[in-house]
Design a protein around this nucleic acid. Sequence first.
DNA 1: GTAACGATCCTC
DNA 2: AGGATCGTTACA
Length: 174
Amino acid sequence: MKERTRINRDFFDRDVLDVAPDLLGKRIVITGNVSNPSGYTITETEAYRGEDDLACHASKGRTGRTATMYRHGGVLYVYLVYGMHWMLNIVTGSPGEPQAVLIRGVEGISGPGRLTRAMEIDKKHNGLDLCTSPLIWLEDCKTVKTFQTTPRIGIDYAGPVWKSKPWRFVVVDF
DNA sequence: GTAACGATCCTC
DNA sequence: AGGATCGTTACA
């Protein structure tokens, strides 16, 4: 797939609560994986926002794994959960501000573990920059007509306050 | 070194 | 409802 207009740094260097809904309808283009189509339109996202957010990995401070989240917007944060599923996240905000958007669904595929399997994304994509990498980038695709917000999934450990934040964004229709 | 725990998915 | 499965983390 040919590169059209790559979305630039300004888009990602904003607060995660602004970026997460704006990612809906954008298309992730990934090259180099021959076995599957390479364009994936985002339909579902979740925001993880700073050290105060008990659902965010950075709530325990800066560690080897979470260091990626402290980088500038547009960097990919990829990690393994439950010993078998790679999660694809896009870092947002200014450098030093640990925020990221979990890509939870793309068109035709729901579930964050299933989309990374389809896209063949794993540890080697951690730290790649969507603004400069020749392998992967983001471009405009569809305009979202309506979307809805719900609490985030799978974060019971975060306590009632953070668990109830409506920081999951789902496309209703394009 | 050792143990506990997941930002999930699939199959009972 | 429960099992798979392993990198990260915290603590001794």
